[in-house]
Structures are given as C-alpha cells and as structure tokens.
Amino acid sequence: MARTKEFDPDAALRAALELFWARGYEATTMAELVEHLGIGRASIYATFGSKHELYLKALDRYAETQDPRIVEELSAPGPALPGVRALVRRFAAEAAADEGRLNGCFVTNSAAELGPRDAAVARRVELSWEQLETLLHAALTRARAGGELPADRDPRALARMLLVLMQGMRVVGKASSDPARVGDAAEQALALLD
C-alpha cells in the first residue's frame, strides 16, 4: 500500500526555491534543504529526485510565477513606449531597492553560477530571456509602427540591448549599494528610444 505524503510538495518546492535563490546551487547543501523544507532527505529524493533535479524544478517554478506585470506593461493597448519605459525603470528600481536586492533575480543568478557548464540550466535561462526579448521586440515593433519610435531604429536590436541592460542591472544592483548606478544606466538606455 502506497504511503500518502505527509507534507505539501508545492510548499516544499517554494521553500527550496527560496533557499536556492538566496544561497545558490553550489552553496546549498542537502542538510540545509532538509532543514529548510522540514522534510527528510528520503522524501526529498522520492518527491523531487536529486538536488540538481530539485534545483531545475525550482527554476521552472520561478519562471512560471514570473511577474505578470511584464506582459501587462508591454501588451497594454495604446502607445507602446510608456510600457517599455515603465518596465526598464521598474527593473532599475527593483535592482537598487534594499528589499530583495541581495538575492537578485533567480534566472540571472542561475545564468551566472551554472549556465556556462549546465546545459539544462542554460536552456531554462535562454527560454526566460527569449520570452522577455520577444515581449520587448513586439512592443518596440508596435512603437515603430505607431510613430513613437523613429523608423530607423531596429526593434530587435533595441529589445536585445534592453534585455542585456535589464539583466545587467540585476547583477550590478545585487553587488552595488549605489542606486544611481543602475538608475543612470536605465535612463541612458531609454534615451536611445527617443
């Protein structure tokens, strides 16, 4: 007879996500996962697989719960550039804010820590970045078609530049206590949209 789980796998996955996000993959031990999740090692393995599989599931969960405001801001009816500007400024503000600043972005953290040597993580990071780039490209294409963006501007290249800037702001914001650093960078990039 199969035993029923004595814990909530969804809550355990959220707890694992929190721990991996705060500490990274390499620095998080199985003992810390057992303690933080409040379940036994055997239960972790039986439910989620290896530590690596749990990390990938946490990264997937993070991607599933990404901020829905991104789609709303970039897909809102009417002029498109205000949404793009709002998104870039929000990323800058979040990167410079004390709350959550030290954790940064889980996708960006994963890219820096594991992306170069872990194909499964690299695929997930690339998918996340492709989604954001696609949303930015669509908004900038709408902006150019609507006359908000000069006709000689390349929406794809601008979307890529903004993606790189936004991810870079998250890295710099995590390590810097100077909010002007990311704020100034955001404003200089947005000036390219004029």
Rank of each mutant, 00 (worst) to 15 (best):
V107W: 11
L102W: 07
E64R: 13
A58L: 13
R124H: 07
T47H: 14
R160T: 06
L54H: 08
L132Q: 05
L33F: 05
L132W: 01
E126Q: 11
A111V: 07
D178H: 04
A22S: 14
L140I: 02
A185K: 01
N109E: 14
I70V: 15
F91G: 06
T28M: 13
I70Y: 13
T134F: 07
L135F: 03
H137D: 08
R61F: 02
A111Q: 08
P179C: 09
E73I: 10
R153P: 06
Q66E: 14
A111N: 07
P77M: 14
I39D: 03
V164G: 03
L127R: 10
A97W: 13
P82L: 09
E130R: 14
T47W: 12
G40S: 08
E113D: 02
A191M: 08
P82T: 06
A112C: 15
V121Q: 11
S128V: 03
G146R: 02
E64H: 14
Q66V: 12
A58T: 06
F48V: 10
T134Y: 10
F106A: 12
I44R: 11
E6H: 06
A80N: 10
A143H: 03
D184I: 09
A112W: 13
Q188A: 15
A96S: 00
P82W: 05
S128W: 04
A86D: 09
P9V: 08
R124W: 06
F48C: 08
A185N: 01
I44G: 12
S50P: 05
V121P: 04
K5W: 14
A180P: 00
L19P: 10
T29D: 02
G100M: 02
I44P: 10
L163N: 13
P77D: 15
R156D: 10
R156H: 13
A120W: 09
A16T: 08
S110R: 10
A119S: 07
V71M: 06
L114K: 04
V84L: 01
A27R: 15
E130H: 12
S43C: 10
N109G: 15
V125F: 13
R101M: 04
Q188L: 15
Y25E: 14
A120G: 08
A11Q: 11
V171E: 13
A2T: 07
G49C: 08
E130C: 11
D152C: 00
